[in-house]
Simulated assay, not measured.
Amino acid sequence: MKKAVVIGAGPAGLMAAEELARADLSVVVTEAKTSVARKFLMAGKSGLNLTKDEPIEALMAAYDEAADWLRPMVTDFDAQAVQDWARELGQELFVGSSGRVFPKVMKASPLLRSWLHSLESLGVEVRTRHRWTGWREGQLLFATEQGEITLEADVTVLAMGGASWSRLGADGAWAEVLAGAGVSLAPFKASNAGLLMEWSDYMRDLFGQPVKGVAWSAGNVMAQGEAVISARGLEGGGIYSVCKAVREGAALHIDLMPDVSDADVAKRLSRPRGKVSLSNHLRKVLRLGPVRTGLLMEFARPLPSDARALAGLIKALPVKHVGLRPMDEAISTAGGVPHEELDAGLMLKRLPGVFCAGEMLDWEAPTGGYLLTACLATGRWAGRGAAQWIPQGC
């Protein structure tokens, strides 16, 4: 049997291994950590958002400038295909009101156990504590607890993740190896990262509180979504949706009343308030609640007395922050292997027989099912590409 080695036991790597095994190759999956799919399991702690149940055009829009080259892969393994795959592994799913798809158990571990059992039945071997360090005399080189070892492979799939959450295995160390082999790489950048804030003491009572009913805008990106106020800053889907624009230098604003027009906000603020304090007046006429009022006070004090000026701030409150959280604390990263370095099957042009998948590739998307969908889709595509290359390359 021809031998395939998949390096990285996350969703992309396991999907590639499945495709290679179904093509009757002998498959070994290696993982640097002591257990597999750690980031996948961590994502499952918040419910495991598998995909977004929406038409392909809406799905592809989430991938921005990478949509063109990702399109054939995601189209071939779209939101419906992801759901079918999970159900075949015995998982009951449900679709939330926003279109996000979750296992009914709201955990990743049952799906992972079933998947690993299926891979084992296909003959896939998983070896943990194997950190890939490059090649030696044409063979794959690994650092293990027993020292350096080599593995022979007729074809290789690299699926080692990006450069965030290094404690879970995605440390980006592979970039140095590929760069040394002549592969041009895009620099890593934090994606889906929280904002760092230097809060005043006024905000302490709001730590841990969710920010709801607002819209976030940065550059030409606007999205509604929640965030959480923490001692370090703001975290959550609403922030992640504008992360890329903020990273690229766009100013961030919050619309504290996205369902009410500027004119209506100004009209409400113009009501006579008598001897009532401004904060009580805001509470009565706008019903912002303590969290939105707290943000308004934090970023706009002293508040203007003019109703129109104050309405303008409420509809476009500038957020004073000190940048994104460090890349290692981001949910995902942009950067990595550009599509120009790959052929149509995701094989590295400079390294025949070596394919790449998942977050190693230079693409990014917001949370909400898009990340996992593309990881599964590119892993499947790379696995199939690798299996089809074997007759040509060997």
Results as ranks from 00 to 15, higher is better:
30 T>K: 05
304 P>V: 03
222 M>T: 12
211 V>A: 12
64 D>C: 03
142 F>L: 08
66 A>T: 01
292 R>K: 15
63 Y>P: 03
304 P>D: 08
264 D>G: 06
82 V>E: 11
24 D>E: 14
57 E>F: 08
338 P>W: 03
55 P>Q: 15
318 P>Q: 04
258 P>F: 03
167 R>K: 14
165 W>G: 09
234 L>M: 13
108 A>L: 05
342 L>K: 02
292 R>M: 07
302 P>L: 11
22 R>W: 09
379 G>K: 10
172 G>H: 05
34 T>P: 00
293 T>A: 13
376 L>M: 10
215 A>Q: 09
83 Q>V: 06
111 L>E: 04
43 A>W: 00
282 L>K: 02
377 A>T: 10
314 I>D: 05
61 A>C: 00
17 A>L: 12
178 L>D: 11
379 G>F: 10
66 A>N: 01
261 S>Q: 03
330 A>D: 06
67 A>T: 01
240 Y>M: 06
150 T>S: 13
2 K>E: 08
38 R>I: 06
260 V>M: 14
38 R>P: 01
314 I>V: 12
96 G>M: 05
383 G>V: 09
122 L>R: 14
354 V>Q: 02
53 D>G: 06
232 R>K: 05
20 L>F: 12
272 P>W: 09
290 P>D: 06
30 T>C: 12
27 V>F: 08
206 L>W: 15
62 A>F: 00
85 W>I: 12
17 A>V: 11
39 K>H: 08
115 W>M: 15
78 D>P: 01
31 E>H: 11
153 A>D: 07
283 R>T: 11
166 S>G: 04
216 W>A: 13
150 T>R: 04
122 L>F: 13
23 A>T: 14
246 V>C: 10
348 L>T: 02
106 M>R: 13
283 R>S: 15
174 W>K: 03
351 L>R: 02
195 L>K: 14
318 P>A: 10
350 R>W: 02
377 A>W: 10
55 P>V: 12
174 W>Y: 09
304 P>R: 06
94 F>E: 11
77 F>G: 11
325 R>C: 13
286 L>C: 01
136 R>K: 14
7 I>N: 11
3 K>Q: 13
59 L>R: 00
24 D>R: 12
278 L>T: 10
49 N>T: 08
278 L>I: 12
135 W>C: 07
277 S>C: 12
292 R>F: 02
241 S>A: 15
169 G>D: 04
135 W>R: 15
233 G>D: 09
374 A>G: 00
311 A>M: 06
213 G>A: 07
313 L>F: 01
367 T>F: 00
234 L>I: 13
314 I>P: 07
258 P>L: 00
390 I>R: 02
257 M>E: 05
23 A>S: 12
380 R>Q: 13
360 M>K: 03
200 S>H: 01
350 R>Q: 09
379 G>D: 07
308 R>E: 15
76 D>M: 04
327 M>K: 09
244 K>P: 02
306 D>Y: 05
253 H>Y: 11
86 A>P: 09
297 M>R: 14
334 A>Y: 00
336 G>K: 00
368 G>C: 01
383 G>S: 09
